[in-house]
Each structure stands twice: as structure tokens, then as C-alpha cells.
């Protein structure tokens, strides 16, 4: 029961994060959507590890990997934002026409 609710909450977080990542125009807000999706993944991992794996330590390791991914996403993302702003004075996704397909 608890596990179901935790996983449903994780699904909700991933859905909200996907909405934010797709809809936000500002790069910084877009990254918050990505972070929110990773937050959902972290919640799902914690819940599954705690309630369904019988204490296998590898589950906690996966959570640590997700946290490392968060750190990587955050720092590279902000570096890209700064680089794009220096080059184009752009802080909105629409301002980047050269990447358009």
C-alpha cells in the first residue's frame, strides 16, 4: 500500500517534471523540470529499495548514482546556460534558432 502510493507519487513527479521541461521557455526553469523528473526517479528508487528488495545494498547505490546524475545535469546545464548567454545574449529557448531542425 505504502509502496504503491510512493510509486504513484514518483509517477506524478515525473509527469510534472516532463511538463515543465517541455513547456518552460526559460532555460533555468527548464532545468527545474529535469530536476523534478530525477526527483521522481529518486523517490521511486528509495521506495522500491526500502519496501521490496529486502535490504539489498545495491539499491542504495542506484540512489547515489541518481544523485551524481543530478549534480552532473545541474553543473553542465548551468555552464551551458552561461555559455549561451555570453555568446547570444539569450536566456530563452526560442532565441536559439541555429539548433532548429
Amino acid at each position: 500500500m505504502t509502496l504503491t502510493i510512493v510509486l504513484l507519487g514518483a509517477a506524478a513527479l515525473i509527469g510534472i517534471g516532463l511538463y515543465g521541461a517541455l513547456s518552460q521557455q526559460s532555460f533555468v526553469m527548464l532545468m527545474m523540470g529535469l530536476e523534478l523528473m530525477l526527483n521522481g526517479a529518486l523517490l521511486a528508487i528509495i521506495g522500491l529499495w526500502s519496501l521490496a528488495l529486502g535490504g539489498m545494498p545495491e539499491g542504495q547505490l542506484l540512489a547515489i548514482i541518481v544523485m551524481a546524475v543530478m549534480a552532473v545535469e545541474m553543473s553542465i546545464g548551468f555552464a551551458l546556460i552561461v555559455a549561451v548567454y555570453r555568446k547570444r545574449q539569450a536566456d530563452m529557448t526560442e532565441a536559439l534558432g541555429t539548433l532548429k531542425g
Partner: peptide, 17 residues
């Protein structure tokens, strides 16, 4: 400050559901 708002809502709701 949003773009492709409907698509994003649909995608988010679909992912969550």
C-alpha cells in the same frame, strides 16, 4: 513563460498516467 503548452500538458499527463 511557456511554449507548446497543450502538448506539454498532454505529455506530462500521459507520462504520469
Amino acid at each position: 513563460m511557456v511554449h507548446q503548452h497543450k502538448l506539454s500538458i498532454v505529455a506530462g499527463v500521459l507520462a504520469a498516467l
